[in-house]
């Protein structure tokens, strides 16, 4: 065992091992970009079957939290387990939906090409894309209402359509945990409804959903659990318990007016 891991154990925070059922558990997660710490000592165990919103002000480290948990950005220290096992072993059970802005939409690909990327692991190195793969991809596009757009060049999609395609790619993986970075940012209302319908349907079938979420007004309507962060963990738990005035005030400080906070937290109870 390495020195850092022992440190975590010494502090009595063996959260990861203590939660073999949790689809995604982190202990003592600390990340920094350059000289700036972005997350500090965050512990959390996602309840199985939860529909979790990670909320917090801009720059609070929400996206960084999921990126570090999935091994996309390096962490300074901390432990991550997926379904009670080391992260690297169980990564195939996770579908990650990054932010749309991180991608060059002028890339030469059609909508179908992007969804097929969700099946690359299955196809392996040498095999060609088969009719079966294409059918799976088209089915996933159907579920997000984009089947008629399969041959469309991705550069010709609106923001909402891009987000639907990203969701379809995640669906193609047939994962057990869906981790999404701001899926509702900059999409139209119809797309927001289409996405939340698909997510609730997945959740009803026992899949766990984690979304980095920025719209506090919809937290109570869409999610069952919240994790509130602002560099440190501020609060966690079922929406009714954790999505409270005091916790929001602690996370957002002066960035939300008192009236806003009261109204938002009141909406959940």
């Amino acid at each position: 065992m390495t020195a850092t891991a022992e440190l975590v154990v010494d502090a009595g925070r063996r959260i990861a091992q203590d939660h073999p059922e949790s689809p995604l558990a982190i202990a003592g997660l600390t990340v920094r970009y350059g000289d700036k710490p972005v997350l500090f000592g965050v512990d959390y165990a996602t309840p199985p079957g939860a529909m979790l919103a990670i909320i917090g002000p801009n720059g609070a480290g929400k996206s960084t939290l999921i990126k570090a948990a999935l091994g996309i950005v390096p962490k300074v220290t901390g432990e991550v387990t997926l379904f009670g096992r080391p992260q690297a072993q169980e990564r195939h059970r996770i579908a990650y939906v990054p932010q749309r802005a991180g991608v060059d939409w002028d890339f030469p690909a059609t909508v179908l090409d992007v969804v097929l990327m969700g099946l690359y692991r299955e196809m392996g190195l040498w095999r060609f894309t088969g009719a079966r793969h294409r059918k799976t991809a088209l089915d996933c596009l159907e579920r997000v209402g984009m089947r008629n757009f399969a041959d469309r060049q991705i550069g010709q999609l609106s923001g909402g359509q891009q987000q639907r395609v990203f969701l379809a790619r995640a669906l193609a993986q047939d994962a057990e945990l869906y981790v999404m970075d701001e899926p509702f940012a900059g999409v139209d209302a119809a797309t927001e409804r289409a996405i939340i319908t698909v997510l609730k349907e997945l959740n009803a079938r026992g899949k766990t959903i984690i979304c980095v979420h920025h719209d506090l007004a919809t937290v109570a309507e869409y999610f069952t659990h919240v994790l509130i962060v602002n560099m440190h963990k501020i609060a966690e738990g079922p929406v009714a318990e954790a999505f409270t005035e005091a916790n929001l005030q602690a996370a957002y400080g002066g960035r939300l007016s008192g009236a806003q906070v009261t109204r938002l937290a009141g909406a959940s109870s």
């Binding site: 091994g71 996309i72 990650y96 939906v97 991180g102 890339f107 990327m117």
Partner: peptide
């Protein structure tokens, strides 16, 4: 196309 997604997978 999408290095973050690739990393996540």
């Amino acid at each position: 196309f999408d290095p973050e997604y690739a990393g996540g997978r």
